[in-house]
């Protein structure tokens, strides 16, 4: 399989074109498995992480930690997220190591354009979800 970085070459320019010249930076993160961080200008607090396994490409955006959820609203929030999942275009809620995330999964053979579409949707969805669900957080 091609290296993730190689596969993502030019993705920043594609994203910038889609976001009407908002600056986008791609930053590989050293580690055992390939991870590339995408930072979109104006949304620096919500970076997107792209990672690849042999079968899929995952784009992940970290939303909030378990501990940030208002305890009395927890069940309601979790159910709401399940209900929302099918309605949110391209992205789904999930949880990794106590962090709630929004993610998009693509085939390992996905083209750069599809990855760019997914990232734009993910970034918009993440910001939207934060705004909509902030009332459930401390």
């Amino acid at each position: 399989m091609q290296s993730l970085q190689k596969r993502l070459e030019g993705l920043d320019a594609l994203l910038e074109a889609r976001l009407f010249d908002v600056p986008v930076s791609l930053q590989p993160i050293p580690g055992e498995v390939p991870v590339v961080q995408v930072v979109i200008g104006g949304r620096e607090e919500l970076p997107i992480f792209i990672t690849a396994s042999p079968d899929q490409i995952l784009c992940i955006c970290y939303l909030w930690r378990d501990a940030e959820i208002r305890p009395e609203k927890r069940l309601e929030l979790l159910e709401l997220m399940l209900d929302l999942n099918p309605a949110i275009p391209l992205s789904s809620f999930g949880r990794v190591e106590g962090c709630h995330v929004l993610f998009g999964a693509l085939s390992a053979n996905a083209r750069r354009e599809a990855i760019a579409d997914d990232i734009v949707a993910l970034s918009d969805n993440a910001l939207d979800a934060l705004e909509a669900l902030a009332e459930y957080l401390n």
């Binding site: 498995v33 396994s53 909030w64 940030e68």
Partner: peptide
């Protein structure tokens, strides 16, 4: 792969200090 990737991401977030901020602050 996802487990290892999230480990890497957590470490990176931890070292940059960016996610010490709460979701609301972000």
């Amino acid at each position: 792969s996802v487990y290892k990737a999230t480990q890497t991401i957590s470490e990176s977030i931890g070292s940059s200090g960016s996610k010490l901020m709460s979701a609301k602050e972000s």
